[in-house]
Amino acid sequence: MTATANPRVSRSPRLRLTRALRGVATPAALLIAPMVLLAFMVFWPLLQQIWISLTDARLTNPGGGSFVGLENFEALMAGTALPQVLANTLAYTLGSTGLALVMGTLAALVVNTRFRGHGFVKGVLASPWAIPPVAAASIWLWMFSESRGIFNRIIEGAGGEPVAWLTSEPWAMVSVILVTAWQFAPLVMLVTLSALKSVPDEVAEASRVDGASAVATFTWVVWPHILPTFRLLGILLVIESLRRWDIIAVMTGGGPVMSTSTIVVAIQRQAFQYQEVGMGAAYAMIGITLAVIFALAYLMVERRAEKRNGR
């Protein structure tokens, strides 16, 4: 009935079949390639990883361990290292993400006011992003140095006691968080800046007309507008810092006394220093679980926001 109503719909059954096929075939064909790629590059290594975590494989023969069931996990649960590694991971992840979000947003707000030379300032503020993490960590290593570092020079100049930035608790964790956030902040600034620019001028003007101060305009108009971007940045940085290894490795190597050992640092130590690949894989499974929990939390928040927007 409806087919005859529209003269452009084909009349012959054969044509109709090809058309129907084309409707399914195109997306299927487009999806096949990435699916195959994903299967080989993500799911297969993941399965392998799960398998290894259930063996006693050693670095000398990574594929050749024998099946030991949940022994690796039991060992982790029994030891005292795991709770500390988890606490370190959370502190490092949330600390550097939070600090980067705050610093990046403040920088974006400043650059967005369009003072003279804001382009130059933007370039300078964005530059840490371009420095390779290991190089960045080395620069900071020098600045944090106990005897010659600039921070201690300043503190001493002000009459204070020098701080062992990288070799005492809790300063070692504070230092790596600071450097990681310093590397993340430019990304936050650039993305937030483009979100800020997408706030319609007239909407911001309307809030001024309605009697909102600059702070109120930010809270009621700008903030809700950039919040989705902000959430996305948050999850990206959380995942990114969960896997960040280079900065900690260069600056503290996980020490002192494991106080900056996050999951990735622990994996590296178990698998390559102690050569216990199976144990390393067990740590990795815990790391993956953490990442999945964060990602699911993000998706839930996002779904709720979408529902509220009536989409």
Partner: peptide, 18 residues
């Protein structure tokens, strides 16, 4: 703007989308 104590209807409405 605030000191002028005005009401303004924008041609583009400028409603708060959120």
């Amino acid at each position: 703007v605030r000191k002028r104590d005005i009401a303004f209807v924008f041609q583009s409405y400028a409603l708060y989308p959120q």
